[in-house]
């Protein structure tokens, strides 16, 4: 059975980096796929990868992760809009999907969409 867990922005934003990573890894190790409203910053992402590597073992093979942001393509004005939106929403824009590599085979990402592919169940 596939378990999707939605994490609203207000639950996540108040946590510090350690707490965010601890919470993500705990849920993922329990076999859950998290849909987080908002996104980690790049330093948090690299720290998440480091901590994931530290706990890989026979049963936990790592994570699949993808973040998607609202696209503001184009000129200076568009960039300004994006920066203002980020400031006002405190990184609320966007979505992060993270799940265990034993369940999530791949997260295919294009600039504007995410496709999540799960592992096929092994035939007995």
């Amino acid at each position: 059975m596939l378990t999707l867990q939605y994490v609203p922005h207000h639950e996540f934003v108040s946590l510090d980096m350690d707490e965010k990573i601890r919470r993500i890894l705990k849920s993922v190790k329990d076999g859950k796929i998290l849909l987080i409203e908002g996104r980690l910053d790049h330093i948090e992402e690299s720290e998440l990868i480091k901590r994931t590597m530290q706990i890989i073992n026979k049963t936990f093979k790592g994570i699949e992760i993808a973040s998607i942001d609202y696209e503001f393509k184009g000129d200076f004005l568009d960039k300004l809009k994006k920066d203002i939106a980020h400031f006002l929403l405190r990184k609320r824009s966007g979505l992060t999907i993270v799940g265990p590599a034993t369940i999530v085979k791949e997260i295919r990402k294009d600039p504007s969409k995410i496709e999540l592919l799960t592992m096929e169940k092994k035939k007995k």
Binding site: D41, H42, E45, S46, I49, I65, S67, I107, K109, D110
Partner: peptide
Amino acid sequence: QNPYSQVNITIIGNLAA
């Protein structure tokens, strides 16, 4: 390969930071 992988984005984001 698809360049929009989280690993590429994370590496480049870290370097930019």
